[in-house]
Design a protein around this nucleic acid. Structure first.
Lengths: 209, 209
DNA sequence: CGTCGCATTGATATCGCTCAAATCCGGTGG
DNA sequence: CCACCGGATTTGAGCGATATCAATGCGACG
């Protein structure tokens, strides 16, 4: 569960619609004129295209607290189908009103731009990580990216969730973590409430640069 | 080779610096105060973090015609080292001047936001594609995403470049394409000047939705 | 004509996926 | 309190897909 961004201009309030989507529900279809812009309060939305054989190709997904398909703000028609991958709560605004709100509220426009820039950085890191073929390389890359100032990387969910993030099977991740711990490359602190992992080795070497 | 975006406010012109980087040159280091914002005219820039063992973790890359590390516009210090992966030509502006230019030129701010949104969509698609474990699934996903209105997907570079984009080895891509062509799932038109690939099957089915 | 890079195909090795079984833990109900 | 259950975790065994190494053809280019 989430709330809409605090920086949204108040004028959008009356135009806000709330959508309660059941799993599998569609928000819009390929080729439809872009009418509304969406924000995920909870659940997961996906943008999907279909291949000639009928198989689905997921183009992008948005989860709790994220805007959905930001590029649709700049397109005349939707280029994918939007589908709820889970039960979802979604907000939406008319695209023209959203664009106008950004145009007339520079501070909101800046906040939106920052959101885009931060998301873009995260996605770029994911791309570089998924380019790595070795499971341990992906884990080390993740720990390098996500570690806090103290060196510890606090896992949001379970280790299975981390496996999903890294596009690995849970068994593979368990084995890799066990191996990295045994060889002294990481340190683990796995409890039921707090799960965290830390890279070992020369500490804070980069910060000294 | 590229040029700076046409929508950049003219006031930035006198503040523009041109950097000619040799391969391996650094633009800035981790922890330095953010001073300038960069755009790649040619070549490839990468943002790198170092792991305790000294290995490098690429966080993001920018190529010809792209801004570099857009999130740095909103950060006090650089969170990575910037390194030229190839010979590079780079433009830069003082971050404060760039932010001010966006704040005082709504149409430029909108164009910048659009650039971010389009890049974000591309990166999201890449993430979803790289999550696929099967080489043929990655190829089909790519063709589904990148196909033009006529169904043909025109390759920008060589098939080796496509292999890099899909995080596959060239040999694997050759085998997968040959197999897909043999089983009638794709059609290839490989010449020296034009290389294009098309998905076969029920045509235009999605557009009818 | 020689070289170089791209493309293609074959053979082999390796890594991660898959199936399977056991353990641990919190929560639930008797 | 204890038995039971479901989900997360852990470890084992085998398989398959992709990486890797190798060889060849092909066209461009000097």
């Amino acid at each position: 569960m989430s709330v809409s961004p605090a920086w949204l201009p108040a004028g959008l309030g009356p135009l806000t619609e709330v959508h309660a989507l059941s799993k599998g529900a569609s928000l819009f279809h390929l080729g439809q004129a872009v009418s509304r812009f969406y924000f995920v309060l909870s659940g997961e939305l996906a943008a999907i295209r279909y291949m000639p054989n009928g198989a689905e190709a997921v183009m992008l997904t948005a989860r709790t607290g994220e805007f959905f398909a930001e590029a649709s703000l700049f397109l005349p028609t939707y280029t994918c189908e939007a589908r709820a991958m889970t039960v979802c709560q979604v907000l939406s605004w008319p695209v023209q009103a959203f664009r106008d709100a950004l145009a007339s509220h520079p501070e909101a426009a800046l906040a939106f731009t920052r959101t885009l820039a931060v998301n873009l950085r995260r996605q770029c890191s994911r791309v570089e990580r998924l380019r790595l073929k070795s499971a341990s390389d992906r884990v080390l890359h993740y720990l390098t990216c996500e570690a806090g100032p103290d060196g510890w990387c606090v896992l949001a969910g379970t280790q299975q969730n981390l496996a999903t993030e890294l596009a690995l099977e849970p068994e593979t991740l368990y084995r890799v973590l066990a191996q990295l711990e045994k060889t002294g490359r990481i340190e683990r602190d796995i409890g039921q409430d707090i799960r965290r992992i830390r890279l070992l080795g020369r500490q804070g070497l980069e910060c000294a640069l």
